[in-house]
Each structure stands twice: as C-alpha cells, then as structure tokens.
Design a protein around this nucleic acid. Sequence first.
DNA 1: TATTTTACCTGAGGGC
DNA 2: TGCCCTCAGGTAAAAT
Length: 306
Amino acid sequence: MPELPEVEVVRAGLAPAVTGATVLGVSVLDERALTRHAGSAAEFESALTGRTIRSAARRGKFLWLPLEERGGDPAEAVVGHLGMSGQLLLRPPGAAPERHERVRIDLAHPTHGEISVVFADQRTFGSLAIDELIPTPDAAPGGLGAAEASVPRQVAHIARDPLDPAFSDTGFRRALARKDSAIKRVLLDQTVVSGVGNIYADESLWAARIHPETRAGDLSTRAVNRLLAEVRHVLDKALAEGGTSFDAQYVNVNGQAGYFAHSLNAYGRTGEPCPRCGRPIVRVSFTNRSSHFCPHCQRMPRPGGR
DNA sequence: TATTTTACCTGAGGGC
DNA sequence: TGCCCTCAGGTAAAAT
C-alpha cells in the first residue's frame, strides 16, 4: 500500500530516467487508469507525445512530471497517484506487457537511450492525468523534487507532507487544535497533513504512545510535537528501508519489494506482544479499515483530565 | 460548515 | 474443486 515512503522511492527511482527525456509514444490499455484525466485516452496520448519531462516531483502520495514549456516555466504536468496497488516500472523498450498493465509511456533519454515507463495497477484505484500547474500560495516549491513554485491543480488542496521543508509545524498544531475528530482520522486527512496512510498512522501513534481514538483537539502541545516527530521518524526510517511491502503490490521502479514490513511495531501485529510492554497488540475496526495499537501503552486520556 | 460514510476495484484467503 | 464471503484501503463524492 503505497504511502509517502513508497511513493518517494518510486519518485527517486523515476527521476534520473525521465528528467530530460522526450515522450516517443503513449499507449493507454485501460481507460480506468485515466479517471482523473479530463479528456479522452486518445487526447491523453496525443497531448503527451513529443513533450519533454523536466523533473519528477512529489507531495504526499501524489507525484507529477512537469512538462517543458517553450520559453517559460512548465504549465502542465503528468500527475500520478498509485492508489492502493499502482506501480510505475522502468522497462527496456519493447518489454513484454506487465500483469495489470494500464498505460505505457515510451521515452527517449538524451544520454540513457530509450526506456519505457509502465503504469500497472491491480485494483485500479491509481490513475494518471495531464493537469495544469498552478502557483503555490506560499511561493515555495510545489513539493519534493519540484524546482518551480507550482503544483498540479488536483494536488493543490493536499497539504504539504512532513518531510517537505516548507511544511508548517505551527500550522499543523493549529489544525489539530481545531479538530473534533479522533487523531487517527485527522492523520489520514490529506488536507491536514499528507503522505500518511493507515500503516504509518498506526506506527506513529504507537511510537508517540497516543490512543488512536483520542480527540485531536484534546492533545497537549507536547503530545502533538511528539507525534509529529514520530511521524517524521517513521517515514524517514521506512524510506531508508525502501518502503513497506506485504505482497507484490508495492515495488520500486525495478519491481523490487521494500523491507520496512520487518520493522513494524503495531500495524498488522494483532495478538502479538507489544515490543515495548509485551502485552498483546489489539485490532479494532475503524471506518471500514483497522487500527492496531497497544491498549496498555496507548491510553485514552481520562475523562475530565487535562 | 464540518464531519462521516460510501463507492470505486481486484485478488487472496478462509469456510464449507 | 468451486462457490461465497470478507478483507485490504486512498480518494472524492455524497450524505448527514
């Protein structure tokens, strides 16, 4: 399940291969991969063909490839989201079709020669689109890997992620203080903080010893700071280990799995001993999905307390 | 307005 | 062997 570290691994893998490359051709095999694209598949193919890619950028779980514009900054980008099972793979030209291949983009790189970017996606929650780039309100680069202070229109409502140098810790604290919802829900709200999904939300809350159902607005400043530090720590560590892979659904651009699944403390460890206190990790249902936590280490604040 | 729920989708795995 | 059910979950739209 690609969250920030997984998408960053993909972005970093893509960047050297696509930066400066020109699109030779595009094949859309399944139009469901273009659900976020305004036009038809044919329009997507023709709009992209012949364009040159300037860089590979990312904010949260969205990544985009700004397209060179004659005599100015890029005005458009190819925007990608991996959804739950999307993969972006680098393949030699003419490579056999991948299982669940949806879109193939053939590139010519000035020094590396020809290569194909293959978008494969089992559950079709992921998508590609061509979208307009709009200026960022804070005039900072749109995301990691972005040279320009612009962001695709469909990504503009997404908050910066905690690894973004322009992320505002103060803004995050203010946003939490205003929230009535459970902290877990707020962590998953991409308009508050981006890049955190179910796995890293559970891991960060476990590390910060915060019960997932704690009302966000009830958290002390100290607790919020601890949580933010743990979010960053968990994301950094997962990134260093190449991301979390449970199955074949998440892989880097070369099709290789990540190792962070071996480092999980709470997520998916139902019934296993908490690495901190030894008591069993529990799993509770949470809006169509699951929360994993240690009921001993992660206590709900006492009613009326604080 | 703010928050919560639902639809989207496919494959793996369990129960019978 | 095969059928049915549940689960995985990010996002956006719909509902409350």
